[in-house]
Each structure stands twice: as structure tokens, then as C-alpha cells.
């Protein structure tokens, strides 16, 4: 199956390990993965901050890069949420009817990683091995924009050797919220502190999520707290196999 990989600007620039892991999982499951070089960013940061006009170039570059693919996969619930729910709004805002039509053609083909694995490929056991204590934070946009439900957890529960620990009040937001983290740092950190407290309570070694952005916020807090809890993207756990040991 031919799949186009959308790295997301954050994954591409700051967390390439999560993107390489996504690539590895997809290739292991027999996909032919392409990386359309014209891709940049979904434009979410601009749209969500109110800069709809400045998001238009990102939306244009996205549809130009991914038009024609049957399957586009990204390791981010948030970016895929923005593509599926906001690209139409941004395109309409621009008044460019052709762009709106292109968005209408492209966005239905875009999947978050766990959706693609479970819904399109129909697998939950991806052949992964990860002998550690892990707790999973189901990020807000995966949960409430994409409604991925328990797909990430089903994938994790099939990983050999893993001990999956229940995160208390898992569905509460971590406090990242894009530019919210800078505009309202105090509330953002207070929310993050509650989330990391719950993470510590589980006794996990690894905090896992499907969004590098939330992990950047929570990882930044955990690192500052020097608790020795690592953050890992879902793809990074799914990518590991016994041969890696």
C-alpha cells in the first residue's frame, strides 16, 4: 500500500525520532512510504491563534504536496484534527474556491497513525516489543476532535513485554494548548503539574502519547522535575522489536 507520510513541522524539526519511528512501523507492515518534499506544516498554530490569513500558505502547500494520495499518515492527532476540521475553514476564509475544493478532496484521506493502523490496515498487533512500565495520555484532539477512542491503547496493549498502567483523570487536558502555553503560562503549568503528578502516581517509566506537542510540554515539566520519567511518542514504542535488543 502506497502511503504519504506527513511529518508535521514539529516532528520534522524537533522530534524526527517519532517520524522515523512512524516510517519504520509503516514499512514493517508492508507499506510503501513516500515523503512528499513540498510539505511544511498544517497551519494549526496560525489558525488557532487567529491568524487565518497567515495559515493559507501552509494549507496551500499541504494540499499541493498530498493531493492524489489515497492515504496520508501523520503521527499527530492534533495536526490531523486541524487538517480535517480547520483546513476547510481557512480555505473558505481565503475566498479561494479552488483551494476549498482541493481541501475537500485531500483532507478525507488524512489519518492519524493509530487510526490508520487500526481502521485502514486492520491491525492492532504491529509486532512490537517494549518491556517497560508505560502510561498513556490520550491527547485532547485525538480524543475529542478525531474521536480515536481506545485505538492507541489497543495498539499498546498488544506490545510484547509492556506493562500498561492506568493514568488517573486521563482525559483531562495537559495544559499545552499551542500558544496557550505562552499566553497563559501559569494556568498551562498548573494543568501540566497535575498531569505529571498523575503520571508519577502510576509508577510508569515512560509517558506515552500520540502528539509530540503535548509531550514537549509534559516532557519539559518532567525533565525540570528530574523524576527520571521519559516521554515517548506512540510510534516510538510501536517501532521497537525484540531484534533491537
Amino acid at each position: 500500500m502506497r502511503v504519504a507520510l506527513f511529518a508535521t513541522c514539529l516532528g520534522d524539526t524537533l522530534f524526527p525520532g517519532a517520524v522515523r519511528a512512524t516510517l519504520r512501523v509503516l514499512e514493517r507492515l508492508g507499506c510503501t512510504v513516500e515523503f512528499p518534499p513540498g510539505q511544511t506544516c498544517c497551519g494549526q498554530m496560525h489558525t488557532n491563534t487567529g491568524y487565518h490569513e497567515q495559515a493559507v500558505p501552509a494549507v496551500r502547500s499541504f494540499v499541493a504536496a498530498f493531493e492524489g494520495y489515497d492515504h496520508v499518515v501523520a503521527p499527530s492527532g492534533s495536526c490531523v484534527g486541524s487538517i480535517r476540521h480547520q483546513h476547510g475553514i481557512v480555505a473558505e476564509h481565503s475566498g479561494d474556491r479552488k483551494l476549498s475544493e482541493a481541501v475537500g478532496r485531500v483532507s478525507p484521506h488524512v489519518h492519524e497513525l493509530s487510526e490508520f493502523l487500526v481502521d485502514v490496515l486492520g491491525v492492532t498487533d504491529v509486532g512490537a516489543y517494549f518491556p517497560h512500565r508505560v502510561t498513556y495520555h490520550p491527547t485532547c484532539h485525538s480524543l475529542r476532535m478525531l474521536r480515536v477512542g481506545d485505538k492507541p491503547r489497543r495498539l499498546l496493549s498488544e506490545v510484547r513485554g509492556i506493562r500498561l498502567l492506568e493514568l488517573p483523570e486521563a482525559e483531562q487536558c495537559c495544559g499545552f494548548g499551542g500558544t496557550f502555553a505562552l499566553k497563559n503560562p501559569d494556568v498551562s503549568v498548573a494543568m501540566g503539574a497535575d498531569k505529571t503528578r498523575h503520571v508519577r502516581e502510576t509508577g510508569a517509566e515512560v509517558l506515552c502519547a500520540s502528539d509530540s506537542s503535548c509531550l514537549m510540554h509534559l516532557g519539559g515539566l518532567l525533565d525540570r522535575q528530574r523524576e527520571g520519567i521519559r516521554t515517548m511518542h506512540l510510534a516510538e514504542i510501536l517501532a521497537g522489536t525484540e531484534e533491537d535488543r
Partner: peptide
């Protein structure tokens, strides 16, 4: 005020 939210959707 419109920025007083993480857009978590709850």
C-alpha cells in the same frame, strides 16, 4: 478571553 482556553474540547 478567547485565548483563555487550550481548545481541549471538553
Amino acid at each position: 478571553l478567547p485565548y483563555a482556553s487550550t481548545l481541549c474540547g471538553a
